[in-house]
Design a protein around this nucleic acid. Structure first.
Length: 650
RNA sequence: GCCACUGUAGCUUAGCUGGUAGAGCACUUGAUUCGUAAUCAAGAGGCCGGGAGUUCAAAUCUCCCCAGUGGCUCCA
C-alpha cells in the first residue's frame, strides 16, 4: 500500500495510506473532541470526506473560528432548506448564505407565519437527531441542470456561472440536495445549536421587480454556551432600546394624529436636543461658521434648479398647490443656502464661506422603514454648507473629519468607521451623469482621506446624486449599519446655481465647490444612538434631570429646598421629590427617569448641611458638604465630562 | 411601498375552543413620617386600535383600514 506524508502542523508529519480522508487525519491527530468542522488541505478548505491522494498539509478549521462559523452557518442554511422542502414540497430554494451570527435562506414559496416557522425549526431539530451524513457530489453541468431542472432560480445561478469557475458540486443530506461549492460539516449532528429567529419578504436578486421570496433567518453557534450568550446579548440590547428608554424617560412621543415618522420632542428630550445644539453652536463658532434660518417650504422651481426634482422626487412630500405656484416641503437645506451665497457678489476673500442652520427637513421615507427616532420623516439637523475653491476642499474636509472625531469623543462614541461613498456608473440615472467629474472628485476625496491617515472602506452606489461623500457608519444594537455623520462634496451646485466669486486676478470664477455636512447626524438619530450607547444614563451635562433630590421624611423638606436652590444657582437641572412615600419607593420610581445623581436628604444631612449622593452606578457617597457637591457637579457639567467621578465605582 | 407578526386602562399585562373585561405599577383620597430597588387601605380609570360582516351573542371568528415591531428595498 502506498503511503503519503501529511504535514499536520507543529512541525510534525504523519504517514497515512493513500485514500485516507481529511476527517481520518483530524481524528487521528486531534482526537474525538477536535471541534473542527472541516480542514485546510494545502490551504484550501475541504470537507472531512475529502480523500487525500498525495503529500499535503492538513490544518483543522475549528467550528468557533471565523472560517469555521461560516461553514457551520452555511451548513445550517442547508439544514433549513432541507426542512422547508420536506414540509413544503412546492418551495424552491434560491440562495442561503451565512451571515453574522447566523444565516438566512430565501425560498420561492407562499408566505409563512410564526407557527409554520416553529414547525420548520422542529423538523430541523429532528433532522439533527437523525445525524444525516452530508455528502459532496461532483457533476457536470448537464447533470446539474437536470438535477435542478425544477428550480428556475438554481438554473439562473448556473447560467450566470457557465464559462467561469463553475462550482459543479452539490451536497446531499438525506433526500435533499443543494447546488453548493462547500465545504460543509460532515453531518447534521454538528448543527445542534441554532434557532430560527424571523421571516421576511425579500426579492430575488434584491430587485423589487423580480420574484418576491420568503426569507427565513436563523442564528447558529458551535456550542450551547455560545448560542445562549448570543440570546443573552440580544436581551441586553433590548433593554437599551431607545424606544423603550425614550418612553420611560419621556424623551419623545409619536402620535397617530400627528403622523408616522413625526416625533414630538417632550421636555426631557428637548433638553438633550438643545444641549447638543448648544455644543454645536460653540464648536462651529470656533470653526468660523455663520448661522442662518430658512423656510421649511419653497417653490417647485427651486428644487428643479437644485436637481432634487427629479433625482430625489420620491423622497419628497407631495407638492402643495398655492395661488402663485407649486410648493414643496424642503428635503434639504442646500438650495436655500445656495441662494444665500448668491445673494451678493462674493470675493475670494470671502471663501471658504460656511453657512450653518438648525433646520428641519421633511423626507417621505417609505412607511415600512420608519423606526422610533432612528428613521423619521421630520429630520432636525445641525446642517451646514461650505462654499470654497477646489484647493480649499482638502482643508475643509480635514476640519470636518476632525470635528466629527472630536464630537464622537465628547459623546463617548468609539464604535464607528469611515466610508467613502462612490457613485455607481451602472446606474447613471440615480446620479448627475458627469463621469469625469465623478472620477476627479472621488479621487480627490480618496487622497484627502489617505493624507489624513484615516482608515476607511469604499462603497459603490452610496454617493449623493450630486457628488461623492464620506459617511461615518455606526452599527446599531441589533447589528444594522446606519449612517450617522456625512460630509459630501458637491460639484454640481456651482453650475446649477451659477455660484461664482471674484478671484485674485479680478476674473469671475465659477469653480465654487460645495461641501454638505452634518457631523451630528440628525438630532433624532443622534439621540437614538446616544440613548442606546449610554442606556439612558447620559453624561451629566446631557441628563435631562441632573440631580433628583429625595427627602426621607417631611422634616427634611427645608434642607432639600436649600440644596435645590444652591444647585439651581449653579445652573444645575434639579428636581425635588418631597412626597410622603418611602425612600426605597422614591428611588425605585426615579430610577426609570435616570437622573445623573440622586441626592438623599435625611436627619443627618439636615443637621450637618451635607448631602448623600447616589450615583448611576448605585454607589453611594455620604456626608458630602453641599458646596463641595455643587462645585464638583458644576465642573462635571461645564467640562462636558463623560467620566462620572462624583460617586466613584467600588 | 413589500412580507410576517403584534395592537386589551398612562405603563406592563391575564383573558382556553365566542357568553358581553381581571391584575400589578402609576394616579386620587385617607392613614403612615419612614435611611437607600414596592408601607397599608379605599377609590377612580377600558365602547378591548378603527370600521364592516358572521352569530341569539364578538376582546375572542372573517374581511378592510390604521398604527407599532422585525426584516426586504431605501437612506441621515
Amino acid at each position: 500500500m502506498s503511503m503519503i506524508s501529511v504535514d499536520v502542523g507543529g512541525e510534525e508529519s504523519h504517514s497515512y495510506a493513500v485514500g485516507t480522508t481529511v476527517g481520518d487525519v483530524v481524528l487521528n491527530v486531534h482526537g474525538r473532541k477536535h471541534g473542527a468542522v472541516a480542514a485546510l488541505v494545502d490551504g484550501v478548505e475541504r470537507d472531512f470526506s475529502h480523500v487525500l491522494e498525495a503529500d499535503c498539509s492538513v490544518e483543522p478549521i475549528d467550528g468557533a473560528s471565523e472560517a469555521g462559523l461560516y461553514i457551520l452557518r452555511h451548513s445550517c442554511a442547508h439544514l433549513l432548506a432541507q426542512a422547508v422542502t420536506e414540509l413544503h414540497p412546492n418551495a424552491r430554494p434560491t440562495i442561503g448564505p451565512p451571515i453574522e451570527h447566523g444565516f438566512y435562506y430565501d425560498f420561492h414559496m407562499d408566505p409563512i407565519g410564526d407557527e409554520e416557522l416553529r414547525a420548520i425549526q422542529k423538523r430541523m431539530k429532528a433532522l439533527v437527531k437523525q445525524n444525516l451524513v452530508i455528502e459532496r457530489e461532483e457533476h457536470g453541468n448537464d447533470t446539474l441542470r437536470e438535477m435542478f431542472g425544477g428550480n428556475p432560480f438554481k438554473l439562473e445561478i448556473m447560467d450566470d456561472k457557465i464559462g467561469h469557475d463553475v462550482g459543479s458540486s452539490a451536497y446531499r443530506q438525506g433526500d435533499f440536495v443543494d447546488l453548493c461549492r462547500g465545504p460543509h460539516v460532515p453531518s447534521t449532528a454538528h448543527l445542534r445549536w441554532f434557532r430560527l429567529t424571523s421571516t421576511s419578504q425579500a426579492y430575488w436578486r434584491a430587485d423589487s421587480s423580480r420574484e418576491s421570496l420568503v426569507r427565513i433567518y436563523g442564528m447558529c453557534y458551535p456550542t450551547k454556551e455560545a448560542l445562549q450568550e448570543r440570546v443573552r446579548q440580544l436581551e441586553e440590547a433590548a433593554k437599551r432600546d431607545h424606544k423603550k428608554i425614550g418612553k420611560e424617560m419621556e424623551l419623545y412621543m409619536i402620535d397617530e394624529l400627528i403622523g408616522r415618522g413625526l416625533p414630538v420632542w417632550l421636555p426631557n428630550g428637548e433638553i438633550l436636543k438643545s444641549e447638543i445644539e448648544r455644543f454645536a453652536i460653540e464648536t462651529e463658532e470656533a470653526y468660523g461658521y455663520v448661522r442662518v434660518t430658512t423656510p421649511v417650504l419653497a417653490k417647485q422651481q427651486l428644487f428643479e434648479a437644485s436637481g432634487h426634482l427629479p433625482h430625489y422626487a420620491d423622497s419628497m412630500y407631495p407638492p402643495m398647490e398655492m395661488d402663485d405656484g407649486t410648493y414643496y416641503l424642503k428635503a434639504m437645506n442646500c438650495p436655500m443656502h445656495h441662494l444665500i451665497y448668491r445673494n451678493k457678489k462674493r470675493s475670494y476673500r470671502d471663501l471658504p464661506m460656511r453657512i450653518a442652520e438648525y433646520g428641519t427637513v421633511y423626507r417621505n421615507e417609505l412607511s415600512g422603514t420608519l423606526a422610533g427616532l432612528l428613521r423619521v420623516r421630520m429630520l432636525s439637523m445641525n446642517d451646514a454648507h461650505i462654499y470654497c475653491t477646489l484647493e480649499q476642499v482638502a482643508q475643509e474636509f480635514a476640519d470636518n473629519i476632525r470635528m466629527v472625531q472630536d464630537y464622537y469623543a465628547a459623546f463617548g462614541f468609539e464604535n464607528y468607521h469611515f466610508q467613502l461613498s462612490l457613485w455607481d456608473p451602472e446606474a447613471p440615472d440615480k446620479y448627475i451623469d458627469q463621469p469625469e467629474n465623478w472620477a476627479a472628485t472621488e479621487n480627490h476625496l480618496r487622497q484627502i482621506l489617505d493624507g489624513l491617515g484615516v482608515p476607511y472602506v469604499e462603497t459603490v452606489g452610496e454617493a449623493a446624486f450630486y457628488g461623492p461623500k464620506v459617511d461615518i457608519q455606526f452599527t446599531t444594537l441589533l447589528g444594522r449599519e446606519e449612517s450617522m455623520s456625512t460630509i459630501q462634496l458637491d460639484f454640481a451646485a456651482k453650475e446649477r446655481f451659477t455660484l461664482t466669486y471674484k478671484d485674485e486676478t479680478g476674473a469671475e470664477n465659477g469653480e465654487v465647490f460645495v461641501i454638505h455636512r452634518a457631523p451630528l447626524s440628525t438630532h433624532e438619530r443622534f439621540v437614538a444612538f446616544l440613548t442606546e450607547h449610554w442606556a439612558g444614563s447620559f453624561p451629566t451635562w446631557l441628563s435631562p434631570v441632573q440631580v433628583q433630590v429625595i427627602t426621607i421624611s417631611e422634616k427634611h423638606k427645608q434642607h432639600a429646598a436649600r440644596v435645590a436652590e444652591a444647585l439651581e444657582q449653579a445652573g444645575v437641572r434639579v428636581r425635588v421629590d418631597d412626597s410622603d412615600s418611602t425612600i426605597g419607593k422614591k428611588i425605585r420610581l426615579h430610577r426609570t427617569l435616570r437622573p445623573a445623581y440622586m441626592v438623599i436628604i435625611g436627619d443627618e444631612e439636615s443637621a450637618n448641611g451635607t448631602v448623600s449622593i447616589r450615583g448611576r452606578n448605585n454607589n453611594q457617597r455620604n456626608g458630602v458638604v453641599l458646596d463641595e457637591f455643587v462645585a464638583e457637579i458644576f465642573a462635571e457639567i461645564t467640562n462636558r465630562s463623560t467620566e462620572l467621578e462624583i460617586v466613584p465605582p467600588e
